[in-house]
Design a binder for these strands. Sequence first.
DNA 1: CCTAATTCATAATGGTCACTATGAATTATC
DNA 2: GATAATTCATAGTGACCATTATGAATTAGG
Lengths: 202, 202
Amino acid sequence: MESTAPTRKPGRPLSFDRQAALGQAMLTFWRHGYETTSISDLTAAMGITAPSLYTAFGDKQQLFLESIRLYATAPEDLQHQFDQAPNAQSAARAMLYAAVHGFTGEFTPRGCLLASATASGSSASQAVQHAVAAIRQDIIARLTARIAQDITSGALPPATNAAALAAMVVAVIQGMSVLARDGSTRESLLGIADCALTCWPV
Amino acid sequence: MESTAPTRKPGRPLSFDRQAALGQAMLTFWRHGYETTSISDLTAAMGITAPSLYTAFGDKQQLFLESIRLYATAPEDLQHQFDQAPNAQSAARAMLYAAVHGFTGEFTPRGCLLASATASGSSASQAVQHAVAAIRQDIIARLTARIAQDITSGALPPATNAAALAAMVVAVIQGMSVLARDGSTRESLLGIADCALTCWPV
DNA sequence: CCTAATTCATAATGGTCACTATGAATTATC
DNA sequence: GATAATTCATAGTGACCATTATGAATTAGG
């Protein structure tokens, strides 16, 4: 890990900010979905032409996969938050509140990119659907493990169904995305999050 | 309301079963979404040609609106179920279990047509997105009223947040649709439903 | 049977889709 | 400055999109 030198490759460099363009692409996919966003939509939002897009990002699918990596919290960061949380319920509360906040931001599309962008699609987009599903399953698995940790430490009763609890939290988050898109207010979604947290065993 | 006579209009009659074709269209929208289903997909599934589709159903949007009317329980039927239920929690439990069953049927697509078909889309499909959102808001409103009824009758504590509870149930249902599409089993979803029901006030 | 009305199958409409061939322009290395 | 490598803008590729024009086929009512 000594390479702080970018060692720019020969040839004409990109004439635009790649990261800024990726951010605009992510917002466009977030607003309109994967298959229902056209290359024209993307180039308009990114301020570049189609050949530039293909040179810098490969194709539409690779651009989307890079967009969801930009959108989603990195798995190691999420794990770190879970490890730092005083207990599993705190971790779940933080996730729920962060979701509500992110789904109702003033300067971003409503809802969750992961929940809506590939919620439906032709069989041609199975690859991206699986990629998004894998992120959700990873979150559920890590939250399940964090709950199991509380059960082992005695912070939660032994009869607690860790997997069901974790999946319920993620289901509420994905469901709140739907309601956020329908127009639900931030306060309304916070009520849902608090309500879901009351089913936590004592 | 005396017209039980179909009074067939003059001209050549439809050569196919309109209701059966509508059912196939509904299944196709359910599986692949609204904008991500093409007229070709529909005519192939329905076993008719494009002009027949347009003659019998108008256009793609009208066919979709008719499909969701076929899919969703009629509002008056849902209201009847809520009225018949011994209490609001029973009504919610019935909804949750019916959702789990419907989202994991052996002979139907996974998940919820309402949750996935218009979860994302271009601005050209705002009309159908609003139509689907209206169905969800109607369900939330009726469930909220049913919960309020229990509060009035003393079956639920006065501090109960009826709107949040109802919205949470619908959020869980829409979130379970996402997980069902990801491949979650029926048993896993039942665990989520039971978990969500434990946050019901006593 | 004749006329009006409707649906049928065939084929085509203009538009948009994701993607790319082309050659000029810009950069690093020699 | 010459060469190699890369991106640039322009323009276009065939395929598919939702929709429909056309004329033959089929029905009801007169």
